[in-house]
Simulated assay, not measured.
Amino acid sequence: MDDDRRICLAADIEQYSRFDTPGQRTAQAQLARMLRAAAERSGLDHGTWSVQPQGDMEFAVLPAGTSEQVVLGEYVTYLAAELGGYNATRRPTERMRLRLAVDSGVAAIAALGFSGPAPIAVARYLNAPEVKRALAAAGSASLAVVISDRLYQDVVRLRFHGHDPEQYRRIHVEQKGFAAYGWVRLPGVDPQDAGEPWRDTPEGGARPPARAAEGERPSFVQQDVHGTAVQGVIHGSVVHGVVPGGTGR
């Protein structure tokens, strides 16, 4: 099973539907370009990633052994820089803002792509209302990054590779049978200036009644789109159609 552990990530364009058809074509091309460029500038081989493009978003499973520190550090830094450079040359209506979700865990090849908790977690984090609100609340931000609690505890909290825990804010994501903590960062934005309509209950504070107490539920529940707890293959969400052993393109 350890051989199935991978870093999974997904990037999604905010308010993609506001673009007209030529604008959508441009946005898709630029998203693909920026994701490749950020990987290459970080020393990562994007050509070895199993990638599933889906119009306004891209889901990827990275090769075993990819450095979590590099993905959360250099890759995020260069992606923010690529976005900043692109937006600096565009009119306000043409600018792009992205949400990026990252988790590390089991992602096993399945008939329609990948199965396992990590692909499901990435999908839930990416579409969490808390993450969307974080990006919307920070008008100067071009990128909102949300990572799993596992990555935060293993990499960020211990300050590996120069990571700064003070740049992250905790959220609680509860969607489609999935429930877990995540951590949001807005690169280039001081957390103190970002506003906090999306922040989770502070450490030591009371948790809202809708959230179960620790130990009463698992960190996530793996379900299909019909709500049945089965293998956890995502159909019609983010991971179907990935070609086993290939890039999915």
Rank of each mutant, 00 (worst) to 15 (best):
L186T: 11
R33V: 11
I7P: 01
Y75Q: 15
G162N: 07
A39P: 10
G55A: 11
P202E: 01
K132I: 09
G204R: 01
P53H: 12
W198D: 10
Y75V: 11
A29P: 00
G139W: 00
G84V: 12
W183V: 01
G205K: 00
L100H: 09
W49K: 03
A88V: 02
L186A: 07
L100D: 04
L72Q: 10
A80G: 11
H240F: 10
H235T: 02
L72W: 09
H235A: 04
S104I: 13
A81F: 04
L44M: 07
D164A: 07
V243A: 12
F114Y: 13
V131Y: 01
E166L: 13
A206H: 05
G73H: 06
R157Q: 11
V145G: 08
V131I: 08
R217I: 07
G55Y: 06
T48L: 12
V51H: 11
A206G: 03
D3I: 11
L98M: 13
D193S: 14
R199G: 04
D45F: 13
G246N: 13
F59K: 00
P92S: 14
G245Y: 04
G204I: 02
Q223V: 14
A118C: 02
L31H: 07
T66Q: 03
C8R: 00
I7M: 02
A137I: 06
L100V: 02
D154R: 10
